[in-house]
Design a protein around this nucleic acid. Structure first.
Lengths: 173, 173
DNA sequence: ATAATGAGTTCTAAAATAGAACCGACTCAG
DNA sequence: CTGAGTCGGTTCTATTTTAGAACTCATTAT
């Protein structure tokens, strides 16, 4: 399977991998959220090669996550800014950061924090259901194939699934 | 910069990229949440090469996200299951899926859904602050460098930052 | 005139990935 | 007992990606 095939995949997660499925892209977005906007800013802070950085920025632009904005003529220079799509990526960063902080320990402390814009207090991200407000974790939520429109979920282990559901649920514990 | 250096990075997001920073790993985890547990199950559903799949599973195991579990002797065979760390990755998947669904459109409908374990209703994931319950987006939350313990945030564009904050805040709009 | 800045592009070498074939330890059908 | 099939890999070569450094071009600063 080729890289580009992912962009057309039916699964949103696969399409997401077509955009952020590499070592650098998410870190570039992190820098965007930290306020970095220029080529050399990204390059110096990340240590990514200029070649790759140029390519990634181009991709993020064509995918509508960043947009280039001229900040001077003569010579013409652009800076990169988050589009609405890019800005709406923030919750993913929050969730990912929170997971990594709790599950991939490090001797050095986290070099940044998420704070409220008003107040400036540090936040603790939780994924919840908009309607019920219930916290969404592996214990409360289940991922199910949609046989809905069209195609197979045929090769999914149906017995294993039930087993798994039982296992993940706080049974006998 | 090499792959492996990421695992020791001070930034949790960088460390996360050391684990899920490639095209396949997140999709393997998706399959785990869908109940797939065996080598051939992953291979057939994802179309990833056996070589890479073996490597990724090994990495996920050593990073403590999956664990191997013998399901038969003679010949000895293992299946892969989510560890608590792996299970706690669910919110990231939720957030990512939601972002991609809203920002990377596709003609084909999403082939799976997240439903509550009790009830079975589809959920709509929102990232909120645990304490205040406030929804966390680019408008309500700000990512700030922590000059706290030790090192520099020196090369961050401080003026640009303020500008950016103003821009992202719903001012003059 | 010389150096520096900013945003790239262009090289070559090294690493990762794709794709297919192979292997070992079985089980099962005939 | 033979041959086909399953499962979970490993090994191989060919192709893509990535790393790392050097180079370009326009312009400003010294």
């Amino acid at each position: 399977m080729k890289w580009h095939d992912l962009n057309a995949d039916a699964c949103p997660l696969a399409r997401a991998m077509g955009v952020v499925g590499d070592r650098w892209t998410l870190l570039i977005l992190r820098e965007c959220f930290l306020g970095v906007r220029r080529f050399d800013g990204f390059q110096k802070r990340l240590g990514v090669t200029r070649h790759l950085l140029a390519e990634r920025l181009k991709r993020l632009e064509t995918m509508g996550v960043l947009e280039r904005h001229p900040y001077q003529q003569r010579p013409l220079r652009h800076e990169y800014r988050l589009t609405p799509s890019g800005k709406s990526f923030a919750p993913v960063l929050l969730a990912m950061q929170d997971w990594a902080e709790h599950n991939l320990p490090s001797p050095t402390p986290t070099p940044f924090a998420f704070v409220t814009r008003d107040g400036g207090e540090e936040v603790e991200p939780v994924v919840t259901d908009r309607k019920s407000g219930q916290e969404l974790t592996h214990r409360t939520v289940l991922m199910v194939p949609k046989p809905a429109t069209g195609q197979s979920a045929a090769d999914l282990p149906t017995t294993d699934r039930a087993e798994d559901a039982a296992l993940a649920r706080p049974t006998a514990k």
